[in-house]
Amino acid sequence: MLSNFKVVLVETSHPGNIGAVARAMKNMQMHELRLVTPKFFPHADATARASGADDVLKSACVYPDLPAAIADCRIVLGASARDRTISWPALTARQCAEKWGGNPHNSPNIGLVFGRENSGLKNHELDLCHYLLRIPCNKAYSSLNLAAAVQVVCYELFVASGQEQTTNVGDQGEVPIATTEQMEAFYLHLQQTMADIGFLHPERSKSIMRRLRRIFNRTQLDTKELDILRGILRFSQNHNTK
């Protein structure tokens, strides 16, 4: 669990957004949510949008101001899509993850601060941050939904921490790839079947078979798939002889 990262929401106006943020956090194994003077919390809309991330909502702490919410943080990043007049150190979500997400257990407490839905963070709040946190996106439309922004950042941290899980669908990887000998037997069977049903003409047989070889070689058939195709060919031959 990425317990050293604290997601801080400042003056969130819509309680549903708080619930959606809780859900986004739990998806990525992050659980510490801090709320700075939310307009409505707790609220039924927050619970509904959390979709099962009730534990994140229940453990969320409410603070009177941003300094109190980040008091124990050694590094603070403030999310901002707007350019600032004064130059400010900036990191993208991925750069943040690369810098601190790779070894979260040895990283300091890090606050990830997200501002109001309609206006973001104010300048005096950004003054408390060490970095601007950026999410690269369409320059013509750079305003992200609050929960979407949190999801992107949490995802990058999750991947960088090495907790990304790989899954196999069905029997992927369990059935061996067909051997060259098995494939050659299939091609002979295929050529004979096409000749039997009158599809293959002698003057075109070489070019057609060459193209068919290219198709099946690209797919890298496994033995189970090859058995199915051979079964279809046998059925076609038997049906044609009746």
Rank of each mutant, 00 (worst) to 15 (best):
L57K: 05
V152E: 00
I208K: 09
R210N: 13
A195V: 06
S107Y: 01
A44N: 10
C61Q: 15
H43A: 15
Q163Y: 11
Y131I: 07
D222Y: 04
G19L: 09
L9F: 08
A69R: 00
G52W: 10
G102E: 06
L133M: 12
Q237C: 09
P67Q: 06
F199W: 13
N217P: 00
S161Y: 07
E203S: 13
Q191C: 05
A160L: 05
I70R: 01
K206N: 12
T92A: 06
I208D: 01
Y187R: 03
A53S: 10
N17D: 08
F114M: 07
S51R: 09
Y141Q: 13
A60C: 08
H201Y: 09
L33D: 11
Q172F: 14
C96R: 01
A81T: 04
I215Y: 08
T223N: 04
H14Q: 12
A46Y: 05
A50S: 15
W88E: 03
N238A: 13
A185V: 01
H130R: 11
Q172Y: 14
L112Q: 07
M194E: 03
R210H: 15
L190H: 11
Q29A: 15
I232R: 09
H189C: 04
G173C: 02
C154L: 06
Q95I: 05
R116H: 13
I232V: 15
L112E: 08
L233P: 05
